[in-house]
Design a protein around this nucleic acid. Structure first.
Lengths: 241, 241
DNA sequence: GAAAGAATGTTAAAATAGTCACAATGTAAG
DNA sequence: CTTACATTGTGACTATTTTAACATTCTTTC
């Protein structure tokens, strides 16, 4: 291995970044040790690698090749090697990758070493379901505050949490150092609430509202949109007649 | 407009398709009237266009330019024109697009003219939430049967539906002409259940299980994976120290 | 410890996706 | 009816992403 990983994750103030990326994902780009810009497609695959590695690790698998990993997650071996190469040399010729080591490295790259507190905004049916959904906590994302615009909901409980008003948002984010929000409000409110979140300092939004939400480039956003997913698959269905 | 849209959606038996597409999405590709192959990225954007157009339509907007549409959904005007050009000429120079007409055309392309029956497999917490989620029905996807592997759940009700056993699956799909399934089983069961669904004739799967599911190329699959979405955004968060 | 085998990291090529810019064509105003 | 203006559809170009191939390096066997 050429360089330790730590050296390859630069401290980089995004507000100084002159890059006017028109990408709708609107996230700042980070560079690796070689000064390369790492494509977002690559970043999106890393959690898939991490999950497979986590599973293999608990199964007691100690080493595997890029080909074995690729078979498991339906990604080509070349793609995996190429993706990892953006960050360093993690494998050994003739042997492949050490599962525990690579997992640790990928988690480090993704900044997944420790649990993060996140907030949930919008406590309708969907919001309730999200609050109950264990997978967040099980994977290092702990919902520590929930907010709703509706005064009648404020004060009510959702699991162990008490629903707070939007006015409490900025203070909460700041006090608890929260950078990530789940957005589960109606489509017509999504942009305004997102803007509020961003003004309060949020850096990443997982949007469940069925609408496009625009964010400045120092903020990341991903959309969870099952209807859109279904609607794109119907294209491929056999012709009806 | 050069050609009527109907002529551009070919009847095309996927099983005769010699195309050995290694795409992990594993869906067959359809071609337009010019014999071009339409990229999946394009197909994935169409539902976004449709949703914006639907909204504009209900708002009473009659015409708009590719630029106005693009601004609204954060896609470049050139991209929109290019995407639509795969399917035909839907706009008018100097005027733009007629909202109602274009919406209808996009829905036709995506085969969204009529409501479709879909099934839900796996009735845990997540499955229950999905069964309750109105957005499916509101957008033309009606859950008409729910299945669970657990005999103790079979016979129980979820809303108006009764949970059936997996043995009832193939018959149900066939009888009701169902082509789409929501997969909400635990990760360790997802591949096996998907295989069962596919053997029973399903053509599209929306997978909520946190694992990669492989499908043959005549089947489409999309993954809804909020944890992976969060884990990719943490990469862009400001460095912790 | 030399030779055979395995699998990486990397370079180059191919394939895919997105942007630009403008001729063509329609609209609308005078 | 003519001119000015708007906006499409598209050909050429650029950028991004993926694949392929292989020299290099490590492992293992004999």
């Amino acid at each position: 291995m050429k360089e330790p990983l730590a050296a390859m994750i630069p401290s980089h103030d995004p507000d100084l970044d002159p890059d006017l990326d028109p990408d709708s994902e609107a996230q700042r780009t980070r560079k690796n040790g070689r000064g390369e810009n790492i494509p977002d497609v690559v970043i999106r695959r890393l959690p898939i690698y991490a999950r497979a590695l986590q599973y293999l690790h608990t199964e007691g698998v100690e080493h595997l090749s890029s080909e074995e990993l690729g078979d498991r997650i339906d990604v080509s071996a070349a793609q995996i090697r190429r993706d990892l190469a953006y960050f360093g040399d993690f494998g050994k010729q003739g042997k492949g990758y050490n599962v525990a080591f690579l997992l640790d490295q990928v988690k480090t790259i993704l900044q997944l070493q420790h649990t993060r507190n996140i907030v949930l905004v919008g406590v309708g049916d969907l919001g309730h379901a999200l609050a109950r959904y264990d997978a967040f906590r099980q994977n290092g994302f702990s919902i520590t505050a929930v907010f709703d615009h509706n005064p009648r909901k404020q004060g009510q409980r959702v699991g162990r949490l008490v629903i707070e008003g939007m006015d409490a948002l900025a203070g909460r984010l700041h006090d608890d150092g929260i950078e990530i929000a789940l957005l589960a409000v109606p489509a017509h409110a999504a942009q305004a609430v997102a803007d509020t979140l961003i003004a309060a300092g949020i850096r990443a939004i997982l949007n469940y509202a069925p609408t496009v939400v625009k964010v400045p480039k120092h903020v990341s956003i991903r959309h969870i949109d099952p209807v859109v997913a279904l609607q794109s698959m119907t294209y491929y269905l056999p012709d009806s007649e």
